[in-house]
Amino acid sequence: MKKLTIILTISISFFNCANDSLSDLTESGPLPNLVTYVKDVKPIMDNNCINCHGTTPINGANVSLVTYNQVKSAVQNNSLISRINATDPGNLMPQGGPKLPQNLIDTVIKWQTDGFVEN
C-alpha cells in the first residue's frame, strides 16, 4: 500500500507539471496603437496640405507631400512638424491658417516617434 501511495504521488506530480509556451508567459493584450502613414498621416496631408504641396507644388510651396517618402523627408529634412506646429503666422502651415487641430499635429509627431511606419 505504501508503494502504491508513493507511485500515485509521483504520478500526480508529473501530470501537474506545466509546459508553458512563451506566449503563456508574456502578458497579452492589445498592442500599442502605431501611427502609420497610410492609415493616419496620408489623410492629414491629403485633406490639408496637397492643395499647395501636390505633385507640382504651387503658391510658394517648395516640397511635394504626396508620397510616403516625400512626407517622411519633409519631417526629417524640412521641419514639417515645426511648420505645422508654429505659432508665428508667417511660418504656420497651412499657409494663411488656421493652424491644424492639435490632435492632427500630435498624430504626425507620433508617426515620427513610432518610426515612420508606412502601412
Rank of each mutant, 00 (worst) to 15 (best):
K39R: 14
N16T: 15
I7A: 15
I7M: 11
Y37N: 07
N91K: 10
Y68P: 09
Y37I: 08
F15L: 15
K39C: 04
N62Q: 11
K99Q: 09
D88E: 07
K99H: 00
A86W: 02
V117Q: 14
L104Y: 12
I6Y: 13
F15H: 09
Q70L: 01
C52V: 14
S23F: 06
V35S: 14
T55A: 11
P89K: 09
G96Q: 06
Q76L: 12
I105S: 00
L8E: 12
N51A: 14
D20M: 06
K99E: 03
V35A: 15
L100G: 04
T55M: 09
N48A: 13
L25V: 03
D106K: 03
R83D: 01
L8A: 15
I7C: 12
G29W: 12
N19C: 09
S13K: 01
N33W: 04
P30T: 13
I50T: 15
G97M: 09
I7H: 05
G90T: 05
Y68W: 01
C52N: 11
Q70A: 07
I105G: 02
I109S: 01
M45W: 09
I6L: 14
I58K: 13
F14L: 15
T9R: 11
G115Y: 13
H53Y: 10
N16S: 15
V35E: 04
N69K: 06
T55L: 08
L65G: 00
L104N: 06
A86C: 09
H53F: 10
H53E: 09
R83C: 02
R83M: 04
N51E: 10
R83L: 11
I10H: 12
Q95A: 14
Y37M: 02
S23I: 06
T87Y: 12
D46M: 10
S11V: 14
T55E: 14
I6P: 05
Q102G: 08
S64T: 01
N85F: 01
H53T: 08
I44S: 04
Q95T: 13
G96Y: 04
D40C: 12
P43L: 11
T36M: 11
I81F: 10
N103R: 03
P98M: 03
K110I: 07
V71S: 04
K72G: 05
F15E: 12
I6H: 03
T9S: 14
N47Q: 12
C17K: 07
S64V: 02
L65C: 02
Q70N: 05
G115D: 08
N77T: 01
N59H: 02
V108T: 10
G115H: 11
N62L: 10
W111L: 04
D88G: 01
A74Y: 02
I81M: 07
T67I: 07
Q102M: 12
V63N: 10
T107K: 12
D88H: 09
V117Y: 08
T26G: 00
P43E: 08
A74P: 13
L65P: 07
V117F: 08
S21K: 08
G54Q: 06
E27M: 08
C17H: 07
L80N: 05
T36F: 04
W111K: 01
V38E: 15
L34C: 01
D114Q: 03
M45H: 07
I105A: 03
A74L: 01
C49F: 12
L100F: 07
P57D: 05
Q112M: 10
T26S: 05
I105F: 01
G54V: 02
G115I: 03
C17Q: 11
E27F: 10
K72E: 10
I12K: 05
S23V: 03
V63K: 11
L104G: 03
L80S: 03
